[in-house]
Amino acid sequence: MQQFVNITLNGLSQGAIYAAFALALVLIWRATRIINFAQGAMAMFTTYLALTLIESGQSYWVGFAAALVAGLVLGALVERIVMRPVEGGPELNAVIVTLGLFVAFQALAAILFGATFQSFPAPFGLRGFTVGEFTIAFTPFSVFVIGSVLVVMLALTALFRFTDLGLRMRASAFSQEVSRLLGVRVGRMLTLGWAFAAVVGSLAGLLIAGGNLVHPAYMDAVIVYGFVAAVLGGLESPGGAVAGGLITGLALSYVSGYLGSELVTLAALGILVAVLLVRPRGLFSRVAERRV
């Protein structure tokens, strides 16, 4: 029983991170019909920037903020410089470009920051709370993880629902041509969309890293989990991505806890294939059909 509770709690906080990562994928997919396979590598890169700052004596929070700002800039640059020319072109070309970025960032990180495992600090305790006589797998850091993911989601929701900028961004995502005719600078909106997505991705990278070891490939599996979560949620809806993230986190946590941690990525593959074949529009859509 205690084990079940712990596995569930662990799944929830992991799920929150996958949700953030999936959200980043969905933001870009909605706007440009591109899955950014470089998202994980970009997040890894900004997390290393944070680590470098922290190791040079800055506080965790300076590193944290710097990573988010770096994500913003990196996302914008990537969209503006390398993605713009392939947007709207053959879908394979865009996929290949993001994969190229993925490899390049990973290699660059290994060159700049080293290819070994390094430990990344956590700003809050990593010892579980105690309930009665039990210590549960829910730590002050888990609270921070879930809290910061929530804050980001609320902020994004507010941006998209209640601001002019958010309206322009959504319009650009749904119909570029009509948005142009209404004077919306669509190019800028896409750049901003990538920038915001990269911030959310960077946050996910920081949260996964907290209290753990990082190395240039530490986000590889997270791309897969985030993609699975996004597909579970239907790839179109931010809300779906969040729900998909939590489901993925829980499911993988149970697999890891009861079957073996080596099988987690394979289980993710299984979930992905099952969803794509049975409910290609995601778990929450009312229509089951869609070309995937």
Binding site: L92, I223, V224, F227, E262, T265, A268, L276, L277
Partner: peptide, 26 residues
Amino acid sequence: AAARLHGPYLAGATLALAVGVPGLAI
């Protein structure tokens, strides 16, 4: 499985394969 997927979906699914299969050896 792949025959029903295209573009980014197929890339994501096969990426999952690439990341997942080495786990079998372990």
